[in-house]
Amino acid sequence: MAQRKERIDRGIKVRSDDVFALTSWREMAYLAFPRVVPVVLLFLLGAVASIYWERVLVTTCMFALLAISWDILASAGMVSLGQALFFGVGAYIAGTLNHYFGISPWLTIPIATLGGGVVCTLVLLPVLRLRGIYFAMVTMILPLMIERVIEATKIFGGTEGISGLNTLGNVHTEFLVAAVMVWVVLFSFRRMMSTDYGLLLKGINDNDRAVMSAGMNIYYYKAQALFLSSAVGAFAGAFMTHAYQFVGMPVFALDYSIIPIASVAVGGAGTLAGPMLGSFILVPLSELLRGLGGLRVVIYAVILVVCTVGLPEGIFHYLSRKYNQFERWVKVER
């Protein structure tokens, strides 16, 4: 007898999709499990980690934010190769405000977040009409260009950068702020993407002409998405500036553009949670491999290739499918 494999939603998933989920603990637990457990896990990790690993976790959170900001942009149809632009602009705004005007980190970070968002949006506004590879090229070149401008004109400390900046306090405070921020950004933007506004952004990605024909000025909305994304990136930059107590040309380095994209490739695009998961795998992994010296990059690259070839949909998509659906053999009915 001919058989085929069938893939259907779990009963509990169907039930908990509805408001009736509120009537049963089991369904509520089913909904809460994938959301609460990672949050608790991250804070637990932070609590038990050594100072060194707590610092790594802070860095990881910032890369997660960069990856999320990449995914927001990509959801609105803008593929960027230059998250370093957002990161660097945020970092320099916070650094200069703190160094030259002596403003406390608790103020420079919010200012840099908003200011970085505005600056990056204004800088990229003229190229908003470019699509695909052309937009990506411009975003990739801009941070490299700014890096050279700083080197040539010697502004903001030139090649030496600005050091001796204020910190947020000790590493525990930094971790708390970083972890809270990651979860706030992740859940609020995930919420946003499921509202009508998020649907509009996804529509621009899917078929921008159809959105135009529906009477929307897509460039206006693209600029908004750009602002949201670059503000998230600028926050990461500003935060890292104060964590390192240093700002200099390396904040525009290619790392800050590449690792977020690698995280998206590993985690799975379009979900915001996927990129975050990806960076929580990749960044600590690269720290773990640090003892291997030169081989580190090789092994890192191999893992990256295996992940993208073996699970091109991304780990998050795979996990969520396993969580929500199951497979079984059924007889083929004619």
Binding site: R4, K5, Y318, R321
Partner: peptide
């Protein structure tokens, strides 16, 4: 199959 999308069955 590679992107984990719809499963196509041909008989």
């Amino acid at each position: 199959q590679r992107k984990g999308g719809e499963r196509i069955t041909v008989m």
